[in-house]
Amino acid sequence: MSMLARLLRRLGRASIGAIERLGFVTRFYFAILRQSGTSVVRPQLVVKEIYQAGVLSLIIVMMSGLFIGMVLALQGYETLARFGATESMGVLVALSLVRELGPVVAALLFASRAGSAITAEIGLMKTTEQLAAMEVMAVDPIARVVAPRFWGGVISLPLLAALFSMLGVYGGYLVGVQLIGIDGGSFWGQMQASVDWRYDIMNGVIKSIVFAFAVSLIAVFEGYDAKPTAEGVSAATTRTVVTSALTILALDFVLTVFMFRGGIN
């Protein structure tokens, strides 16, 4: 009995902690929005962060996109060939990518490549009192350090996701048409006939924008909230990747239900 009570108490404490943290994140988010004026007046600050978050993630995102597209084509061919529907390969590859894999995998890669870097950088700036130094110099660190990184991430991720999908489709084309020998005309033609730019592509883009806000917010928050020690920063970096991944997948489920439920009923 006492063990049950202890278990429940722990559950209660964990829930309260989680809600408290959610409250902090929300307040932090509004603080970022309030302090975003600097990023607008001095776009150079954001450009630098787009370089750090976006340009430096280009290689990994594009390579992953290409390979995933090629694997999709290979696996898809296996299945489609059983039904004699190999000309639908373009549809399969394109829909999987623009609706799901593009936004989700690009966001996961972004969280581990750029998100963790943002967390580590802000955490380290906190540890070495750089943020405190700014504050004493009458410069708000949220405006000067946090907001540009946040917006840099928000702008970068949707572009990365689009590049991921594009290279994935190209990878599917390489394997499907060039390697396996499906007719190129039906590959592209079927794809264009079945992929709707508003229904499929715009919803994919909206997904990646939502993920961009979530991952960027998690990354800057964990950095700003990190314990100012070496262990604190490394723990925060790990938390960024784990929390981002879970958030992306949970949000993906919710968004998919809302966006594509027309296909279910």
Binding site: L163, M166, D196
Partner: peptide, 21 residues
């Protein structure tokens, strides 16, 4: 960053035109 944004927007356009309808 200019190149990145350009090819990113290009990819979006590719998706809308070449992949989509």
């Amino acid at each position: 960053v200019g190149i990145f944004v350009a090819i990113g927007l290009g990819a979006l356009l590719f998706l809308a035109l070449k992949v989509g309808n």
